[in-house]
Design a protein around this nucleic acid. Sequence first.
DNA 1: ATACATATGTAGGCACTCTACTTATAGCTT
DNA 2: AAGCTATAAGTAGAGTGCCTACATATGTAT
Lengths: 115, 115
Amino acid sequence: MRPDAVRGHLDGLILAVLEDGPRHGYAIIEALQTRSGGALDLPTGTVYPALRRLERAALLSGTWSTVAGRERRTYTLTRSGRHALAGQRAEWNEFSAVVDAVLRPAAGRPAGGLS
Amino acid sequence: MRPDAVRGHLDGLILAVLEDGPRHGYAIIEALQTRSGGALDLPTGTVYPALRRLERAALLSGTWSTVAGRERRTYTLTRSGRHALAGQRAEWNEFSAVVDAVLRPAAGRPAGGLS
DNA sequence: ATACATATGTAGGCACTCTACTTATAGCTT
DNA sequence: AAGCTATAAGTAGAGTGCCTACATATGTAT
C-alpha cells in the first residue's frame, strides 16, 4: 500500500483503536499494525502530530505518566471523540460505497449507479 | 460526503470513467455524478488539473475538437492508463479492506485482524 | 437582455502525511 | 564497555493534491 493512502482517514483509524480503551502513541501504532494485518506501518512523524491535533480538537484527552522509566502520554476517547468516531464510520461507509460504485467495471454496472 | 474525501483516489475514479470510452472533462464530471448517485460533485478546479496531470503522466491522451461551436478536449485511456487502472483497483481493494478491518467495532473483531 | 447550461482553465491557499532528524531510557549482545 | 534494538515522544521542512474563487467563451431558453 502506498504510504500516503490513509490521508483523510487517519483520524477515524486512531479513534477506532482508542475505542477499546486508553492507549499511548507507540501502542496505537502497534495496534494499527496488528489490526491491519501488517499493512499499516505508520511513521511516528505521522501519528504523534495527529494525536496532538485530535487532542486540540477535544476528541482525545491525554495524560502523562512514567512507566518503567519511560515517559508516556496516554490518550483516552472523549465523549465528542466517540461521537466523531460514529461520524467517521458513517462517512467511510458512504465513501467506500461511492468509490466501489465508480470503480466497478462496466460489466458489473447495469446502468444504475449505486445499488 | 466531505469535499476532500476523494483525495488520493481521484485518479482511479477518472480512469474508471474513461474505461467506457473517450470523454471530455465536463462529461467526466457528469459521469462521476451519475455513477456515484449524486454523491460526487467535483469542482472543475479539481478535475481539469487532474486530467492534465494524468495526461502528463501518459495515462491519458487528449485531443482538441470543436463541437457545436464549443472547444472540447477529449481524453482517451492509453495502454499505461489501462494498466494503472488495474493497479488502482487492486490498491483500492486492499486499502478498503484495511480500513474496514481497523474501523470495525470490537464486537465484530475476534482478535484476528484481516479475515 | 438576461440567465443558465456547456466547456475549459488558472491562482492561491490549506491541510495532511511524509522523510529525516532529535532526544531519552532499558535491556541484550558481543 | 560499547553498541544495537526496542520503547517512547516529538519537531522541521517538504511535497502533494484538492479546494475556493475567479476568468473566459459560446449556445440556448426566457
